[in-house]
Design a protein around this nucleic acid. Structure first.
Length: 420
RNA sequence: GCCAGGUUGCCCGAGCGGCCAAUGGGAACGGACUGUAAAUCCGUCGCGAAAGCUUCCAAGGUUCGAAUCCUUGACCUGGCACCA
């Protein structure tokens, strides 16, 4: 158990802690109770949340008691963003998101056995607090002087956008959670992304002031790529954990395309590979980058973690079939069906032009855009470059009479199905 | 409530009543480039094959002509007032 913090540090999962020595001692001293919170700002968790899940997963395996908090109340308020005020979400939206997130988290932790994780919703203990009690029991411990120093808040105070009282109060609301979990469940450690540092400390301070106890915080770094941008976006869309929002295929491809400079870091964070294995893959990246061994391992393991081994196999087979040999016309019907099942696409009848097919399948936004793409040499049909925008899709273009594989650029595949 | 300023394409942001489908930057997309990534260079980036059409918060108006002027409304920001 004593190695846990070392392990987390080696994996690059520790950005900041309160009193590291005290935390180490606490972790060594036997199972402690910790919590991590997720705000229901979307109907699914995303890539960024995965880091948190990986951390608590390790915590639980190390024997600690894990509480997952879903922010049914904080989600109604909204954590201040540095640039602009959030639009309030309806209670229904938040409730739906809470339910969705709850079921996603359950896949990562063990809720049975002799050290079951626990799931809580902060709405349960916040809902009943009256405005007066809120101000008297908690507001009194929060100094505005300190509150306005928090990064997001001060950024907003200095911006044209300003900040509403609602969002300003967020940190109190979140601080209250830690206090509640400390009192009721003996929770003495909170983990979260480093951008939550300020909010988390609000809880630590509150506990110190009301209970006179020192509790711990461990934050994880924000994962950024080599240009300093946050990870988890693809084509401007977030990478979601919900397979209905980001298909396992897209999910797998995302990790397969991770840049060389970053892949080792991500391997440490998301896989269970040990130092030797990571070093080995690191060497392969250096010596034979084109093989993408590290990326393949990463993609396989993360996809398995999130979507399970079966889905992973399916997307791997699909990827191999579509990218591997080049000649897709020789694929047998079964493989073709599996390979294209995951792809986005559309339906098109025999006889329409390739231009129209591109629009119908969502490859291009307009016929003009489709023509441009073709003129730029960016479109291929069944792996053969398309030259004529007026070319018509014929019977034979639909492999096995069903589906044509359209590629935009080098790596964006779309399945154009033949309509009846 | 009063006063002032603002609202331009994915984002930021320029824009003289005609030469504005609208400068510039970023993002994105395609090619060079092979399933490396990154960088770089080139190209594209409202709809339309084109003629042309529909755009600059919304609705009216002035004008031969409006993103540019006027009116009203919506929303945003700031200041003042109210907060006995």
């Amino acid at each position: 158990m004593s190695d846990l913090l070392d392990e987390l540090q080696w994996r690059g999962l520790v950005a900041q802690t309160t009193d590291e020595a005290a935390l180490r001692e606490a972790l060594d001293g036997g199972p402690l109770t910790m919590y991590v919170g997720f705000d229901p700002t979307a109907p699914s968790l995303h890539f960024g949340n995965l880091v948190q899940l990986v951390v608590v997963r390790r915590m639980q395996r190390a024997g600690h008691h894990v509480i997952c908090l879903v922010g049914g109340s904080t989600g109604l308020i909204g954590d201040p963003k540095p640039d602009s005020e959030r639009v309030l979400r309806t209670k229904e939206q938040v409730a739906d998101a809470v339910a969705a997130i709850r079921s996603q988290v359950e896949a990562f932790l063990d809720f049975d056995g002799d050290n079951p994780a626990r799931m809580v919703n902060n709405l349960d203990w916040t809902e009943g607090i009256s405005a007066l009690d809120f101000l008297r029991d908690y507001g009194k411990y929060f100094r505005v002087n300190g509150m306005i120093k928090k990064d997001a808040v001060s950024a907003r105070l200095n911006s044209d956008a300003g900040i509403s009282y609602t969002e300003f109060s967020y940190q109190i609301l979140q601080g209250l959670d830690y206090l509640h979990l400390f009192r009721e469940l003996g929770c003495t450690l909170q983990t979260g992304a480093v951008d939550q540092w300020g909010n988390i400390l609000a809880g630590v301070d509150l506990i110190r002031q009301t209970e006179g106890e020192h509790v711990h915080v461990l934050t994880t770094p924000l994962l950024t790529d080599s240009t300093g941008r946050k990870y988890g976006k693809s084509e401007g869309n977030a990478i979601w954990l919900d397979p209905a929002m980001t298909s396992p295929y897209a999910f797998y491809q995302y990790f397969l395309n991770v840049e060389d400079a970053e892949v080792v870091k991500l391997l440490k964070v998301f896989t269970d590979l040990g130092a030797d294995q990571v070093a080995d893959l690191e060497k392969q990246v250096r010596e034979e980058p084109f093989r993408r061994a590290a990326q393949r391992t990463l993609a396989e393991q993360v996809t398995t973690l999130v979507h399970g081994p079966e889905a992973t196999r399916a997307v791997q087979d699909a990827s191999a079939a579509l990218f591997g040999k080049g000649d897709v016309t020789v694929l047998d019907e079964r493989t073709l069906a599996d390979a294209t099942a995951e792809l986005p696409g559309g339906e098109v009848a025999v006889g329409v032009t390739i231009t129209d097919a591109l629009v119908a399948s969502g490859v291009a936004d307009s016929r003009n855009a489709a023509r441009r793409l073709i003129a730029e040499g960016g479109v291929s049909l069944n792996n053969v470059k398309v030259g004529d925008p007026e070319a018509v899709l014929v019977e034979e273009d639909f492999l096995h009479g069903r589906v044509a594989i359209v590629k935009r650029g080098r790596k964006h595949l779309v399945a154009v199905r033949r309509s009846a």
